[in-house]
Protein backbone atom coordinates (compact mmCIF):
# COMPACT_ATOMS: atom_id res chain seq x y z
CA UNK A 1 0.00 0.00 0.00
CA UNK A 2 1.44 3.31 -1.03
CA UNK A 3 -1.30 5.56 0.29
CA UNK A 4 -3.50 5.67 3.39
CA UNK A 5 -6.40 7.78 2.14
CA UNK A 6 -7.61 9.86 -0.80
CA UNK A 7 -6.48 13.05 0.93
CA UNK A 8 -3.06 11.49 1.41
CA UNK A 9 -2.87 10.91 -2.36
CA UNK A 10 -3.77 14.54 -3.12
CA UNK A 11 -1.33 15.92 -0.56
CA UNK A 12 1.61 13.80 -1.60
CA UNK A 13 1.05 14.27 -5.32
CA UNK A 14 0.79 18.02 -4.71
CA UNK A 15 4.15 17.91 -2.94
CA UNK A 16 5.75 16.69 -6.17
CA UNK A 17 4.07 19.45 -8.18
CA UNK A 18 1.12 17.47 -9.52
CA UNK A 19 -2.23 18.97 -8.51
CA UNK A 20 -4.80 16.20 -8.75
CA UNK A 21 -8.54 16.67 -9.07
CA UNK A 22 -10.70 14.61 -6.66
CA UNK A 23 -11.46 12.16 -9.48
CA UNK A 24 -7.77 11.57 -10.17
CA UNK A 25 -6.88 11.21 -6.48
CA UNK A 26 -9.75 8.77 -5.83
CA UNK A 27 -8.86 6.58 -8.77
CA UNK A 28 -5.14 6.49 -7.94
CA UNK A 29 -6.03 5.52 -4.38
CA UNK A 30 -8.29 2.70 -5.61
CA UNK A 31 -5.72 1.47 -8.13
CA UNK A 32 -3.26 1.15 -5.25
CA UNK A 33 -5.80 -0.46 -2.92
CA UNK A 34 -7.33 -2.94 -5.37
CA UNK A 35 -3.99 -3.66 -7.04
CA UNK A 36 -5.40 -3.03 -10.51
CA UNK A 37 -3.82 -1.26 -13.47
CA UNK A 38 -5.03 2.24 -14.20
CA UNK A 39 -6.21 3.12 -17.71
CA UNK A 40 -6.05 6.88 -18.25
CA UNK A 41 -7.78 8.53 -21.18
CA UNK A 42 -8.21 12.17 -22.04
CA UNK A 43 -7.24 14.88 -24.49
CA UNK A 44 -3.57 15.55 -25.17
CA UNK A 45 -1.78 17.78 -22.71
CA UNK A 46 -3.83 17.26 -19.54
CA UNK A 47 -1.08 15.39 -17.71
CA UNK A 48 -1.71 11.69 -18.28
CA UNK A 49 1.97 10.79 -18.52
CA UNK A 50 2.82 13.29 -15.79
CA UNK A 51 0.53 11.40 -13.43
CA UNK A 52 2.62 8.23 -13.77
CA UNK A 53 5.81 10.19 -13.20
CA UNK A 54 4.35 11.87 -10.12
CA UNK A 55 3.21 8.56 -8.64
CA UNK A 56 6.68 7.11 -9.22
CA UNK A 57 8.26 10.05 -7.45
CA UNK A 58 5.86 9.82 -4.49
CA UNK A 59 6.41 6.09 -4.10
CA UNK A 60 10.17 6.36 -4.49
CA UNK A 61 9.80 3.84 -7.29
CA UNK A 62 11.61 3.35 -10.55
CA UNK A 63 9.62 4.38 -13.60
CA UNK A 64 9.67 1.73 -16.33
CA UNK A 65 8.26 3.09 -19.55
CA UNK A 66 6.97 1.21 -22.57
CA UNK A 67 6.27 3.63 -25.39
CA UNK A 68 3.82 2.02 -27.79
CA UNK A 69 3.83 2.62 -31.52
CA UNK A 70 2.51 0.88 -34.58
CA UNK A 71 4.48 -2.32 -34.98
CA UNK A 72 5.76 -2.67 -31.40
CA UNK A 73 6.06 -6.41 -30.76
CA UNK A 74 6.92 -9.04 -28.18
CA UNK A 75 10.63 -8.62 -28.73
CA UNK A 76 10.46 -4.93 -27.88
CA UNK A 77 7.82 -5.08 -25.15
CA UNK A 78 8.60 -8.29 -23.26
CA UNK A 79 12.02 -9.89 -23.78
CA UNK A 80 14.40 -11.00 -26.48
CA UNK A 81 17.22 -13.53 -26.63
CA UNK A 82 20.58 -12.00 -27.33
CA UNK A 83 21.28 -14.01 -30.49
CA UNK A 84 24.64 -12.49 -31.25
CA UNK A 85 25.93 -13.30 -27.78
CA UNK A 86 24.49 -16.82 -27.96
CA UNK A 87 26.32 -17.42 -31.25
CA UNK A 88 29.56 -16.17 -29.70
CA UNK A 89 29.04 -18.46 -26.74
CA UNK A 90 28.50 -21.48 -29.00
CA UNK A 91 31.53 -20.78 -31.13
CA UNK A 92 33.66 -20.17 -28.01
CA UNK A 93 32.88 -23.54 -26.44
CA UNK A 94 33.66 -25.82 -29.41
CA UNK A 95 34.45 -28.94 -27.41
CA UNK A 96 31.38 -29.16 -25.19
CA UNK A 97 28.33 -31.28 -25.92
CA UNK A 98 25.06 -29.86 -27.26
CA UNK A 99 23.25 -30.43 -23.96
CA UNK A 100 25.74 -28.36 -22.02
CA UNK A 101 25.61 -25.57 -24.55
CA UNK A 102 21.82 -25.58 -24.67
CA UNK A 103 21.30 -25.23 -20.93
CA UNK A 104 23.84 -22.48 -20.91
CA UNK A 105 22.73 -20.29 -23.80
CA UNK A 106 19.11 -20.18 -22.60
CA UNK A 107 19.95 -18.71 -19.23
CA UNK A 108 19.43 -15.30 -17.67
CA UNK A 109 22.77 -14.10 -18.99
CA UNK A 110 21.51 -14.17 -22.58
CA UNK A 111 18.09 -12.72 -21.88
CA UNK A 112 17.50 -9.10 -22.82
CA UNK A 113 14.62 -7.92 -20.64
CA UNK A 114 12.29 -5.33 -22.19
CA UNK A 115 10.01 -2.98 -20.16
CA UNK A 116 7.23 -5.45 -19.28
CA UNK A 117 9.68 -8.06 -17.97
CA UNK A 118 11.79 -5.45 -16.20
CA UNK A 119 8.73 -4.19 -14.34
CA UNK A 120 7.91 -7.65 -13.04
CA UNK A 121 11.37 -8.82 -11.99
CA UNK A 122 13.15 -7.68 -8.84
CA UNK A 123 11.98 -6.57 -5.43
CA UNK A 124 12.30 -2.81 -5.64
CA UNK A 125 9.06 -0.81 -6.11
CA UNK A 126 8.28 0.11 -9.72
CA UNK A 127 5.78 2.11 -11.67
CA UNK A 128 5.11 0.70 -15.12
CA UNK A 129 3.95 3.29 -17.65
CA UNK A 130 2.52 1.91 -20.89
CA UNK A 131 2.23 5.07 -22.93
CA UNK A 132 -0.16 5.58 -25.85
CA UNK A 133 -1.50 2.05 -25.70
CA UNK A 134 -3.93 2.82 -28.53
CA UNK A 135 -1.02 3.19 -30.98
CA UNK A 136 0.02 -0.44 -30.53
CA UNK A 137 -1.52 -3.24 -32.61
CA UNK A 138 -4.28 -5.47 -31.31
CA UNK A 139 -1.85 -8.39 -30.86
CA UNK A 140 0.13 -6.46 -28.26
CA UNK A 141 -3.04 -6.08 -26.21
CA UNK A 142 -3.21 -9.87 -25.99
CA UNK A 143 0.33 -9.80 -24.65
CA UNK A 144 -0.64 -7.22 -22.04
CA UNK A 145 -3.56 -9.30 -20.78
CA UNK A 146 -1.37 -11.94 -19.17
CA UNK A 147 0.98 -9.38 -17.71
CA UNK A 148 -1.74 -7.14 -16.30
CA UNK A 149 -4.10 -9.72 -14.84
CA UNK A 150 -1.62 -12.10 -13.19
CA UNK A 151 1.57 -10.03 -13.27
CA UNK A 152 3.49 -12.92 -14.75
CA UNK A 153 5.44 -13.59 -17.91
CA UNK A 154 6.08 -16.97 -19.46
CA UNK A 155 9.45 -17.54 -21.13
CA UNK A 156 9.26 -21.03 -22.67
CA UNK A 157 12.95 -21.86 -22.03
CA UNK A 158 13.01 -20.52 -18.46
CA UNK A 159 9.51 -21.04 -17.12
CA UNK A 160 7.01 -18.58 -15.71
CA UNK A 161 8.32 -15.50 -13.97
CA UNK A 162 5.86 -14.12 -11.42
CA UNK A 163 6.14 -10.69 -9.86
CA UNK A 164 7.23 -10.86 -6.24
CA UNK A 165 6.13 -7.26 -5.90
CA UNK A 166 3.38 -5.91 -8.10
CA UNK A 167 4.24 -2.73 -9.95
CA UNK A 168 1.81 0.18 -10.04
CA UNK A 169 0.66 0.14 -13.68
CA UNK A 170 -0.55 3.15 -15.64
CA UNK A 171 -1.76 2.81 -19.23
CA UNK A 172 -2.48 5.94 -21.23
CA UNK A 173 -4.56 6.26 -24.38
CA UNK A 174 -5.61 9.07 -26.69
CA UNK A 175 -8.58 7.04 -27.91
CA UNK A 176 -7.41 7.01 -31.52
CA UNK A 177 -8.51 3.37 -31.52
CA UNK A 178 -11.05 1.66 -29.30
CA UNK A 179 -9.10 -0.57 -26.89
CA UNK A 180 -10.45 -4.09 -26.56
CA UNK A 181 -13.10 -4.79 -23.96
CA UNK A 182 -10.91 -7.49 -22.40
CA UNK A 183 -8.14 -5.01 -21.68
CA UNK A 184 -10.54 -2.38 -20.33
CA UNK A 185 -12.11 -4.84 -17.94
CA UNK A 186 -8.79 -5.52 -16.29
CA UNK A 187 -8.21 -1.86 -15.57
CA UNK A 188 -9.70 0.93 -13.53
CA UNK A 189 -10.86 3.60 -15.93
CA UNK A 190 -9.97 7.23 -15.42
CA UNK A 191 -10.88 10.06 -17.74
CA UNK A 192 -8.81 13.16 -17.12
CA UNK A 193 -10.68 16.08 -18.61
CA UNK A 194 -9.90 19.75 -18.42
CA UNK A 195 -9.66 20.91 -14.79
CA UNK A 196 -12.22 23.29 -13.32
CA UNK A 197 -11.40 26.97 -13.13
CA UNK A 198 -10.15 26.92 -9.57
CA UNK A 199 -7.84 23.94 -10.05
CA UNK A 200 -6.46 25.32 -13.30
CA UNK A 201 -5.71 28.62 -11.58
CA UNK A 202 -3.74 26.75 -8.93
CA UNK A 203 -1.88 24.81 -11.62
CA UNK A 204 -0.93 28.02 -13.42
CA UNK A 205 0.23 29.65 -10.19
CA UNK A 206 2.30 26.58 -9.34
CA UNK A 207 3.94 26.17 -12.76
CA UNK A 208 4.43 29.88 -13.49
CA UNK A 209 5.14 31.36 -10.08
CA UNK A 210 6.11 34.80 -11.38
CA UNK A 211 2.67 35.50 -12.82
CA UNK A 212 0.43 38.08 -11.19
CA UNK A 213 -2.64 36.52 -9.48
CA UNK A 214 -5.18 38.70 -11.29
CA UNK A 215 -3.56 37.95 -14.64
CA UNK A 216 -3.58 34.22 -13.89
CA UNK A 217 -7.31 34.44 -13.27
CA UNK A 218 -7.89 36.26 -16.56
CA UNK A 219 -5.75 33.71 -18.40
CA UNK A 220 -7.81 30.83 -17.06
CA UNK A 221 -11.09 32.58 -17.86
CA UNK A 222 -10.09 33.24 -21.48
CA UNK A 223 -8.99 29.61 -21.89
CA UNK A 224 -12.33 28.51 -20.40
CA UNK A 225 -14.18 30.65 -22.93
CA UNK A 226 -12.13 29.16 -25.79
CA UNK A 227 -12.96 25.65 -24.61
CA UNK A 228 -16.66 26.45 -24.71
CA UNK A 229 -16.31 27.37 -28.41
CA UNK A 230 -16.69 24.77 -31.10
CA UNK A 231 -13.04 24.55 -32.16
CA UNK A 232 -11.07 21.89 -33.98
CA UNK A 233 -8.50 21.66 -31.20
CA UNK A 234 -9.33 23.31 -27.91
CA UNK A 235 -6.42 24.49 -25.75
CA UNK A 236 -5.28 22.04 -23.09
CA UNK A 237 -3.61 22.61 -19.73
CA UNK A 238 -0.19 22.46 -21.36
CA UNK A 239 -1.21 25.31 -23.68
CA UNK A 240 -2.56 27.35 -20.76
CA UNK A 241 0.81 27.07 -19.04
CA UNK A 242 2.66 27.93 -22.25
CA UNK A 243 0.48 30.99 -22.67
CA UNK A 244 1.04 32.09 -19.09
CA UNK A 245 4.81 31.73 -19.62
CA UNK A 246 4.59 33.70 -22.87
CA UNK A 247 2.73 36.52 -21.14
CA UNK A 248 5.29 36.55 -18.36
CA UNK A 249 8.14 36.69 -20.87
CA UNK A 250 6.46 39.56 -22.74
CA UNK A 251 6.05 41.43 -19.47
CA UNK A 252 2.30 41.88 -19.94
CA UNK A 253 0.59 42.72 -16.66
CA UNK A 254 -3.00 42.81 -17.94
CA UNK A 255 -4.74 41.31 -20.94
CA UNK A 256 -5.90 43.54 -23.76
CA UNK A 257 -6.91 43.05 -27.38
CA UNK A 258 -3.49 43.43 -28.93
CA UNK A 259 -1.71 41.15 -26.45
CA UNK A 260 -4.33 38.43 -26.87
CA UNK A 261 -4.33 38.71 -30.64
CA UNK A 262 -0.54 38.52 -30.86
CA UNK A 263 -0.26 35.49 -28.60
CA UNK A 264 -3.34 33.53 -29.66
CA UNK A 265 -1.07 31.25 -31.70
CA UNK A 266 0.30 29.79 -28.47
CA UNK A 267 -3.17 28.55 -27.55
CA UNK A 268 -4.68 27.60 -30.90
CA UNK A 269 -2.95 25.46 -33.48
CA UNK A 270 -5.27 25.80 -36.48
CA UNK A 271 -5.81 28.91 -38.56
CA UNK A 272 -9.60 28.29 -38.71
CA UNK A 273 -9.68 28.21 -34.92
CA UNK A 274 -7.70 31.44 -34.63
CA UNK A 275 -10.10 33.23 -36.98
CA UNK A 276 -13.15 31.89 -35.16
CA UNK A 277 -11.77 32.84 -31.75
CA UNK A 278 -10.86 36.34 -32.96
CA UNK A 279 -14.41 36.86 -34.15
CA UNK A 280 -15.98 35.57 -30.96
CA UNK A 281 -13.70 37.49 -28.64
CA UNK A 282 -14.19 40.74 -30.66
CA UNK A 283 -10.47 41.08 -31.19
CA UNK A 284 -10.90 43.02 -34.42
CA UNK A 285 -12.98 45.65 -32.64
CA UNK A 286 -9.99 47.97 -32.52
Amino acid sequence: MLFTSVDDVSARLAATGYLASPAVATTVFLADRLGKPLLVEGPAGVGKTELAKAVAEVAGARLVRLQCYEGVDEARALYEWNHAKQLLRISAGRDESWDEARTDIFSEEFLLPRPLLTAIRGDDPKVLLIDETDKADVEVEGLLLEVLSDFQVTVPELGTITASRRPFVVLTSNASRELSEALRRRCLFLHIGFPDEQLERRIVRLKVPGLDAALAESVVRVVGALRAMDLRKVPSVAETIDWARTLLALGADTLDESVVRDTLGVLLKHQDDVLKAEAKLDLDAL
Partner: peptide
Protein backbone atom coordinates in the same frame (compact mmCIF):
# COMPACT_ATOMS: atom_id res chain seq x y z
CA UNK B 1 -14.12 0.40 -3.83
CA UNK B 2 -17.10 1.27 -1.63
CA UNK B 3 -15.39 -0.53 1.24
CA UNK B 4 -12.10 1.27 0.69
CA UNK B 5 -13.65 4.71 0.30
CA UNK B 6 -16.47 4.53 2.85
CA UNK B 7 -19.82 6.23 2.44
CA UNK B 8 -18.89 9.54 4.06
CA UNK B 9 -18.10 11.53 0.90
CA UNK B 10 -20.60 11.22 -1.92
CA UNK B 11 -18.36 12.71 -4.62
CA UNK B 12 -15.51 10.33 -3.81
CA UNK B 13 -17.96 7.44 -3.99
CA UNK B 14 -19.17 8.68 -7.38
CA UNK B 15 -15.62 8.77 -8.77
CA UNK B 16 -14.78 5.41 -7.24
CA UNK B 17 -17.79 3.69 -8.76
CA UNK B 18 -17.20 5.38 -12.11
CA UNK B 19 -13.58 4.18 -12.12
CA UNK B 20 -14.52 0.57 -11.41
CA UNK B 21 -17.73 0.23 -13.45
CA UNK B 22 -17.21 2.31 -16.59
CA UNK B 23 -14.96 1.56 -19.56
CA UNK B 24 -15.21 4.69 -21.63
CA UNK B 25 -15.74 8.42 -21.58
Amino acid sequence: AVQALGLADRELLREGLAATLLHGT
